[in-house]
Amino acid sequence: MTDKFFEIIERPIEIDSIIKKVEDRNAGAINTFIGTVREMTKEKKTLYLKYDAYIPMAEKKLAQIGSEIQEKFPEAKVAITHRVGELKISDIAVVIAVSTPHRADSFEGSRYAIERIKEIVPIWKKEHWEDGEEWIGDQLETNAYPDGKPDKEELEK
């Protein structure tokens, strides 16, 4: 692991090292979110996943999410690492750590980060099912942006 707070990597994520990055003597809470590879989506069985990313932009957008959290909670520290490449069931795809002086803010920051990743960070997941494969457009398996892009408010909020 490196010292980068916002990182896309190809190797397994070491959870402890992400938590370490946000440690702070004034923190009363560190909230971690760990996103893992699920086997069943509705009736479909995943064999493995492949993640790809536009790495430099993805790291920038992760950093933007960190700044957005700090706008709301100035004392927050945020670290996010997302893995790319081939992942098997139960592998860790993303780890988010948010430390804040009080616990409620760390829960909120962490939740915000994962939802925002699904909106603005250029990372894609390709499902390899038992009966085929498919790039996933969003988590609902439909196209996320009927007008072609996130609306302005979504990009700038």
Partner: peptide
């Protein structure tokens, strides 16, 4: 991110980004 009306110049790097599905 850039809208369709934005001008791109020589030397710029453009990317087309399908709906994302990280996390």
């Amino acid at each position: 991110y850039a809208e369709d009306n934005v001008l791109v110049h020589r030397g710029d790097l453009v990317a087309f980004i399908p709906p994302v599905s990280g996390g």
